[in-house]
Amino acid sequence: MQANKADIVFGFVLIAAASVLFWESLKIAARFAGRFTPFYYTPGFVPLLISATLIVLGVVLIVLKRGAFRGSWRPRATIRELLAARGLWATVLIGSYVLLLPRLHFVAATAAFLFVMTMVFNPRHVLVSALVTVIATFGIYFVFARIFIISLP
């Protein structure tokens, strides 16, 4: 039942987002349509069709799950499930790593990320985490930057 309610919320979010895109597409199509450019040849035509279809699919999703309107919804349970503690930690740490990359050197940012991640998700010993960090960081750096000559962030 909770999953069905989450589907309904998703359906509404989808309709809202698709409506914005529909409006934007309509503006593009109207801007280009004219005497020599038929409406169906404008850059807004296909996005208009796609966003309209997404609105219809959102409505269908809500209609199919309409039974879930009955009964109480526990949004906290859904949000708690979405952001399970370990999952939330993983997401925050990966996000921080991605944001740190342009500010620090690849080796420094990667080493910091690997050390913290292994400490959080495999809390055995600081030395084990440090060893994994050093081997993986320099291993990846050596293989990609030196052997494959791939530029790193």
């Binding site: 990320f113 690997l114 991640m117 292994t118 990846i140």
Partner: peptide, 26 residues
């Protein structure tokens, strides 16, 4: 898994960046 997955995350970042060397892709 706690050791393997962080390393795979780094590989994902390298893979995304390698395409056109843009941090935007990451």
């Amino acid at each position: 898994v706690g050791v393997l997955m962080p390393v795979i995350t780094v590989l994902c970042v390298v893979g995304a960046f390698a395409v056109s060397s843009r941090i935007f892709d990451v």
